[in-house]
Design a protein around this nucleic acid. Structure first.
Length: 630
RNA sequence: GGCCUUGUAGUUCAAUGGAUAGAAUAGAAGUUUCCUAAACUUUAGAUACAGGUUCGAUUCCUGUCAAGGCUACCA
């Protein structure tokens, strides 16, 4: 049990004994003592004042004395300042802890059995390569899964591949028109990039055609439109002209973009793409063959990227297999009266009582929409694995969608509804603004990874500390450092906040970065290569800098639990950075190899040993490797 | 319009309602005959604004301002 929980337990017991009042341990606030006061941990007393009808000072003295007397193995001294009871943990406790744990291979990991959890992440579209946003998603999902494992959960990593839909058809059309049969081999290009090129090509063609159609709309040349569409367009054009005359700029842009959307949807090339999708759904062999071919190119490309960034999955679902799912759930919902069927045959759910709108769950022609599939998929996941929790690592733009999904499931009374959790993360933006694949302002994942590795290489060469490395070892080191910097950068901030990625500043190898932590590890290893701790018991004497490290180390397990409870890898990143910093301060001040006495040397070797191991474990939870030398 | 996020040093990020708001980076000043200076030490610098709740508010509530997202019979 951790020191902090021991303190809470001791305080609760003391209050019960002294005042005959039961206080829940979770209501006791224990903080690290501020450096300007004496002590290791502090109990905040104000919360008890009202209930106990005593001054904070009196409570502190009584509580402190009782706790010390009844836990003499754990605490040495106490003092009370204002409303704060500062406790000093006994040195013997710290040294015993270190001696017991320093060689524990699974230090920090929880042994108890917990829940069965599925983490869904990555979930790419197969019409373009992965970009920076996918990287955040992948790192976050992978790391959260590993953290959950370390906290004692059984975890299934899964990815939903969006391999079907209009976006794929776009790439297919452009490839047919322009590629002259090009393949990844003939073009000497990764398959996902090749397919992505044709997606961009499609958008270019579409843009050009849309311009012409837009002019027609504005000129009210409306051949080929239905009466209904015609009326709508006429109304819009009227409104547009009105907005222009009255110089209502905002309204003008709004209507213009609406008309533009209509224009895009009515271009010949867009109609071709829709036609292709229809053929796909009808099972047209020729279309399916092209679809399979292009998708397989993309998968090969993705696999390469995943392998490089260290992402993996236990189970992959393909949307083409499950886009028809969910209809039976809709039927069930209708029977239960949770869903409503309108006269035109479309099915809706009314969420106005929950502060949301009405939401369509089935089209009037009986076909699925996005949410229908997701209902079906949620059911499928449960059927396949009987999971307690299903975590969706999905961008915050889909907050509404995920909220609706959970609500519908709750209303349907699905046993797994409460376990649906949206791990929502903010978009990654560039200093110039949002990334848009339509406009080609995306940071490509493969490019970025290559750049990071290149920078790591330059920096490492500058440092000139790699004597004796062979070519393979060098390449591995560059990858370890480059990817470490990138992953750490993307994981060190609170997932739910959107972040700005500045290609220049972000690629930093000093300070609060992966390489800083990696460097600390390499330094320790360099010492341990020459000498290992013997494992003999330690005498109870600690310098402040030595104690600081042990205090940090002791918190590792609690930090893992906290990160798991919050689904927040940034907690691990901050922890491991802090640990490295604490160790570095110690390292420059005191010598390990030339310690004052043999006892001191043994203590410091055990300290170094456990620190290195903890750094390695914590970084592995972030998906970051640590080098033996750098 | 409605709903949801987010506003903290020049910049990028911390801080379960608790002591003098922490880091990193950029700035200034230092540390290398001694285990790796990708390090360490010192220094200066911030809670958008206005109210409220209370012993105490960056944190909770209300309003204002600012940034972003969602509000498709697209996925």
């Amino acid at each position: 049990m951790s020191v902090v929980s021991n303190i809470k337990k001791a305080a609760a017991a003391a209050i019960k004994e002294l005042y005959k009042i039961e206080i829940d341990e979770s209501g006791i606030l224990v903080n690290a003592t501020k450096p300007e006061f004496e002590g290791d941990y502090t109990i905040v007393l104000f919360a008890f004042v009202k209930q106990l009808r005593k001054s904070p000072e009196a409570i502190g003295q009584e509580l402190g004395a009782y706790i010390i007397n009844n836990n003499s193995n754990l605490f040495e001294r106490f003092n009370v300042i204002k409303g704060f009871l500062n406790l000093t943990v006994s040195t013997a406790y710290w040294t015993d802890f270190l001696h017991q744990e320093f060689s524990n291979e699974s230090f920090g990991r929880s042994v108890r059995k917990n829940k069965k959890v599925m983490v869904e992440y990555s979930s790419p579209n197969t019409n373009k390569p992965l970009h920076l946003g996918h990287l955040r998603n992948n790192f976050l999902g992978w790391s959260t899964a590993e953290i959950l494992k370390a906290a004692g959960n059984e975890v299934i990593k899964t990815s939903i591949v969006n391999d079907r839909g209009i976006h794929i058809c776009k790439s297919m059309i452009a490839w047919q028109k322009h590629a002259n049969g090009a393949t990844p081999e003939s073009a000497e290009k990764k398959g996902d990039h090749l397919v992505g090129d044709y997606y961009v090509r499609f958008e270019e063609d579409l843009k050009a055609e849309a311009l012409a159609v837009y002019d027609q709309l504005e000129g009210r040349e409306l051949e080929g439109f239905t009466k209904e569409e015609e009326t709508k367009i006429m109304t819009l054009v009227d409104a547009l002209e009105h907005a222009e005359r009255s110089q209502n700029k905002e309204k003008y842009t709004e209507i213009k973009s609406e008309l533009n959307e209509i224009a895009r949807n009515n271009t010949p090339i867009m109609k071709e793409a829709k036609q292709l999708l229809l053929k796909w759904e009808q099972g047209d062999e020729e279309v399916l063959a092209l679809w399979r071919k292009m998708n397989s190119w993309v998968y090969t490309g993705f696999d390469e990227t995943y392998k490089r960034i260290g992402s993996d999955f236990d189970k992959t679902y393909y949307e083409s297999d499950l886009y028809l799912l969910g209809k039976d759930l809709v039927e069930e919902g209708l029977q239960k009266g949770v869903l409503i069927k309108k006269e035109d045959g479309s099915v809706w759910i009314d969420l106005t009582a929950d502060g949301l709108d009405q939401k369509l769950v089935l089209r009037r022609d009986g076909t699925s929409v996005y949410i229908t599939q997701d209902l079906g998929l949620a059911q499928l996941k449960y059927n396949d694995y009987q999971i307690d929790e299903s975590i969706y690592v999905v961008g915050d733009e889909q907050n509404y969608h995920l909220k609706v999904l959970k609500l519908i499931m709750q209303k349907l009374g699905a046993p797994y509804a409460e376990g649906i959790i949206h791990l929502s993360y903010g978009m990654v933006e560039l200093p110039s603004g949002k990334m848009k694949s339509r406009e080609g302002t995306v940071v490509d994942a493969d490019d970025l990874v290559n750049t990071m590795i290149e920078i790591a290489k330059e920096k490492t060469r500058e440092q000139g500390k790699t004597e004796g490395f062979n070519e393979t070892e060098l390449l591995e080191l560059y990858e370890t450092i480059g990817l470490g910097a990138l992953k750490f950068f993307l994981l060190r901030v609170d997932p739910k906040k959107r972040m700005i990625f500045n290609p220049e500043d972000s690629i930093e190898l000093q300070g609060f970065t992966g390489p800083f932590v990696q460097y600390t590890h390499a330094r320790i290893k360099s010492i341990l290569r020459k000498e290992q701790p013997k494992g003999i018991p330690l005498s109870a004497h600690l310098l402040p800098l030595e104690k600081d490290i042990i205090i940090d180390l002791e918190q590792f397990s609690a930090v893992i639990s906290e990160a798991a409870d919050d689904y927040d890898p940034s907690k691990i990143a901050m922890y491991v950075f802090n640990l490295a910093k604490t160790f570095n301060s110690f390292y420059t001040e005191h010598s390990i190899a030339n310690a004052e006495t043999a006892d001191k040397k043994e203590l410091r070797l055990q300290l170094a040993y456990l620190t290195a191991h903890t750094i390695k474990t914590a970084m592995s939870l972030l998906g970051i490797r640590v080098p033996e030398r750098m």
